[in-house]
Amino acid sequence: MKQNTVATLAAMKARGERISQLTCYDYTTARLMDDAGVNMILVGDSLGMTMQGYADTLPVTVEEMIIYGRSVARGCRNTFVVLDMPFMSYQISPQQALETAGRMMKEAQVDAVKLEGGRTVADQIRAITDAGIPVVGHVGMTPQSYHAFGGFKVQGKEEDSARRVLEDALAVQEAGAFAVVLECVPPKLAALISRTLDIITIGIGAGEGCDGQVLVYQDMLGMTGDRVPKFVKRFAEAGQLMQEAFRAYDSQVKSGAFPAAEHAYGKSDCADEILARLEEEQAGSNWKLCSVM
C-alpha cells in the first residue's frame, strides 16, 4: 500500500503536519517527485497551458487527462495522485460527473479526482463520493471559470466574496470531499477556512495558514521564463540549466565534438573485415543496378 492515502493525509492534518503537493504530467518527473517524498501530485488541467501551449485550461479533454494521469500514476509508488476533471466533464449533472470520475479512476489508475466549484457542484461531489471515489474540491479562484471572474483575480477580498468562498468550502466538505484547494484567497481568510474545516486545505496563492501547499512544477523550477505568479517561489533555475545544456549539445553536434570515441560501442576484431565485405557487396550491387538502368 502507498505511504500516502486519504487516511494518512487526514492524520497529517490532525497532527498539524504540513502536506506537500506539486503538479506533474509525466512518468519521469513523477518518479523524481515520488523519490523526493512529495505527499501528493496533482495532474492538473493546467497541462493545457504547461504542456500543450493553450492560453487557458478550457480545451483540455477527458481523454487527454487520462493519458497524462496514467503516465504519472505509473511513476508513483507512494505519492498520492489526484486527477483533474476538465471543463464541462462534470458540470451538466451528477450522473455525468459520476460517469466521468469513474472512467478517469478506472483508466488512469489514480487515487482521487478533483473538480472546481463549491455549492454549485455539491451534488456532483456527493454522487462521486457516494460511489467510493475520493474527491478534492477547489474553491476561490477557479481557473475554469476565469472568464466569469474577468481574469485570474484574487477571490474573497470583500465581505460578500469572502463569505461565498467560506460557504463554498463548507459545501464541499458537507458533500463528502476529503480535501479542498484554496486558490488566490487572502491568507487570513484561507487560515480561517482551514481552522473551520475538518478536511484538508491545500493552498496556492493562499498563504501559510493552509494544511498543505501546491505549485505548478514548471513555475517552481524556473521553466516558465518571466511569467511567474506572485505566490510562486523558484526553488531552482532548471529552465536556465536546461537551455544551457541544449545550447551545448547543439554546438557540439554541429562542431563534431559529439559524439567522441568514448560515446561509441567498441568494435569487434572482425569489424574491418566485415565492413570491407559489405562495401564490396554494395559496390557490386550499385554496378548491377547501374547496368540494368
Rank of each mutant, 00 (worst) to 15 (best):
L22Y: 07
L22W: 05
L22C: 09
L22E: 03
L22I: 00
T23R: 03
T23S: 13
T23K: 04
T23W: 04
T23Y: 06
C24M: 13
C24S: 14
C24E: 10
C24I: 08
C24N: 13
Y25I: 05
D26G: 02
D26R: 04
D26F: 04
D26C: 03
D26P: 01
Y27M: 08
Y27I: 02
Y27G: 01
Y27L: 13
Y27T: 05
T28I: 12
T29G: 06
T29K: 02
T29Q: 13
T29W: 14
A30Q: 11
A30G: 12
A30R: 11
A30V: 09
R31C: 07
R31P: 03
R31H: 02
R31G: 00
L32A: 14
L32T: 02
M33T: 00
M33Q: 11
M33W: 04
M33N: 01
M33F: 15
M33H: 07
D34I: 02
D34N: 05
D34G: 00
D34T: 01
D35S: 10
D35E: 14
D35G: 05
D35A: 14
A36K: 06
A36T: 05
A36C: 11
A36N: 03
G37V: 00
G37M: 00
G37H: 03
G37K: 03
V38K: 01
V38C: 08
N39A: 11
N39V: 01
N39Q: 12
N39G: 07
N39C: 09
M40C: 14
M40H: 00
M40Q: 09
M40A: 13
I41N: 00
I41T: 01
L42F: 07
L42K: 06
L42R: 09
V43L: 06
V43K: 02
V43T: 12
V43Y: 01
V43S: 08
G44E: 13
G44R: 06
G44L: 12
G44Y: 09
D45T: 10
D45V: 09
D45N: 09
D45Y: 09
S46D: 09
S46Q: 10
S46W: 09
S46Y: 06
S46M: 10
L47W: 00
L47I: 12
L47N: 03
G48I: 12
G48N: 12
G48S: 12
M49V: 10
M49Q: 11
M49L: 08
T50E: 14
T50C: 15
T50R: 12
T50Q: 15
T50K: 13
T50V: 15
M51A: 14
M51F: 08
M51R: 11
M51E: 14
M51V: 14
Q52N: 12
Q52L: 15
Q52K: 15
G53C: 11
G53A: 12
G53N: 11
G53T: 11
Y54E: 10
Y54K: 05
Y54V: 03
Y54A: 10
Y54S: 08
A55C: 07
A55M: 13
A55T: 15
A55S: 15
A55G: 11
A55F: 07
A55K: 15
A55R: 14
D56E: 06
D56R: 00
D56C: 09
D56Q: 03
D56T: 12
D56I: 00
D56L: 03
T57V: 15
T57E: 04
T57G: 08
T57D: 06
T57M: 04
T57I: 13
T57C: 07
